[in-house]
């Protein structure tokens, strides 16, 4: 018997293979059930037109009960989008990745949420505390306790 997390991820992968990703989201690699990469583009009119970002998912053995660690890939020519909720090290401040995570959410659902988070952005800028945060940021964004006090961006 394979573990629940592997089975659930296997199902998600089969579904992605069978039905494809939503527009603007593409699977880059899913070689194992630990780390997956996606590319994200914002479709239509937005501040991020024509830009492509890479999103990394890391899963632990408790997925989907515990949330995946999601961040933008930085380095190797890849950068994180300039957005008031995205730090320059790729960490994302989004409630559904933290205390608003629900086990019924899926990898694709997270991708879509982040895509729409970028799409609704009105001004390209870093979070105000970006410099302070990235200096001491833990490797895993799940170890950061974010404050979510802004639903509008």
């Amino acid at each position: 018997m394979t573990s629940i997390s592997a089975r659930r991820l296997g199902k998600e992968l089969t579904e992605i293979k069978a039905e494809g990703c939503p527009v603007g989201i593409n699977l880059v690699k899913a070689d194992d059930f630990a780390t997956w990469w996606f590319t994200i583009e914002v479709m239509g009119e937005s501040l991020y037109q024509g830009e492509k970002y890479t999103l990394q998912f890391r899963f632990d053995s408790n997925y989907p009960i515990s949330s995946p660690a999601v961040q933008f890939v930085v380095g190797d020519g890849k950068v994180s989008p300039v957005h008031p909720h995205v730090y320059s090290n790729g960490h994302i401040c989004a409630s559904i990745l933290g205390n608003e995570w629900s086990p019924v959410l899926s990898v694709i659902a997270v991708c879509v949420t982040i895509q729409s988070m970028l799409a609704s952005c009105k001004k390209k800028e870093r979070p105000t505390d970006n410099d302070r945060y990235i200096r001491f940021a833990p490797d895993n964004p799940k170890k950061t306790r974010f404050h979510y006090d802004d639903d509008t961006v």
């Binding site: 401040c93 979070p127 105000t128 945060y133 833990p138 950061t144 006090d149 802004d150 509008t152 961006v153």
Partner: peptide
């Protein structure tokens, strides 16, 4: 040290 509490009240103002 792993936990950094972030405040972004300014964001709220700007977000409107």
């Amino acid at each position: 040290e792993d936990i950094i509490v972030l405040d972004s009240e300014e964001e709220r103002e700007r977000g409107d």
